[in-house]
Design a protein around this nucleic acid. Structure first.
Length: 220
DNA sequence: CACCAGGCAAGTA
DNA sequence: TACTTGCATGGT
């Protein structure tokens, strides 16, 4: 069992290496909090390029606002977001999210942002179609809450480096990060974005490029 | 051609 | 609780 202060130093070291290697990532791209929140649903199990196509489809018709999307028919919405895959499912999930905003926050994003992070997290998780990663992406990237986002890359990178067990679930992995890092929105934002950047380039599922990975010297 | 990408919910045993 | 399956487009 590795001592906690050693683990904390290791997490800082990883961050330093990644930041030096890749620089700031400027996440999350989006013109509004609402756009980021919708993007969080659209990006479920797909790549960002496809999400951009869907976002642009909506923007080109000037439909990317809470009111406009609320009035838009399910069928049209599904058609606009087709490039993201699972478009029927995601259209339904966006509709559920819009209803949630209307019912609990009178469709005012500003009210959402004022809420307590953990309470808001539980509310989001109660919305059908919003799981832990989507909820946390909204909390961190749309609502500026200090919540660490876990994704497939994060788990893969850290379990391959034996920093967490392979069978850690979402909550256990998130607890690991939040207990070993200072609670800082900007840090959480950059850290997760850097992990995704690293994952895409060096830590893919089947053909990881460990030889050229910036973290290869981690234990030296 | 196969495989993966910034997941989630519902069903089964 | 612990698996399994459906959802689906687009890039490499």
């Amino acid at each position: 069992m590795i001592q906690q202060h050693l683990m904390r130093n290791k997490l800082k070291k990883i961050y330093k290496i990644l930041y030096k290697e890749f620089g700031p990532q400027y996440w999350w791209p989006g013109d509004s909090q609402f756009e980021v929140a919708i993007g969080a649903i659209l990006t479920q199990n797909t790549n960002w390029q496809n999400v951009e196509k869907a976002i642009n489809n909506l923007k080109n018709k000037n439909l990317l606002s809470l009111k406009k999307l609320y009035k838009l028919s399910f069928k049209k919405l599904a058609d606009f977001i087709r490039p993201t895959g699972y478009y029927n499912l995601k259209a339904q999930r966006i509709k559920f999210f819009l209803h949630f905003l209307k019912e609990k926050y009178k469709s005012k994003i500003n009210l959402v942002k004022k809420n307590n992070p953990q309470l808001l997290r539980r509310e989001l998780l109660d919305v059908n179609g919003i799981g832990p990663e989507t909820a946390d992406s909204m909390l961190l990237y749309a609502f500026d809450k200090p919540i660490f986002v876990i994704d497939a890359y994060t788990k893969r990178i850290f379990s391959r480096h034996d920093l967490i067990p392979k069978d850690f679930d979402y909550q256990q992995t998130q607890d690991f990060f939040m207990q070993n890092l200072p609670k800082n929105t900007k840090l959480f934002n950059e850290y997760h974005a850097l992990l995704v950047k690293l994952g895409k380039e060096f830590c893919t599922k089947n053909k990881p490029k460990c030889q050229s990975c910036p973290l290869k010297t981690l234990n030296k």
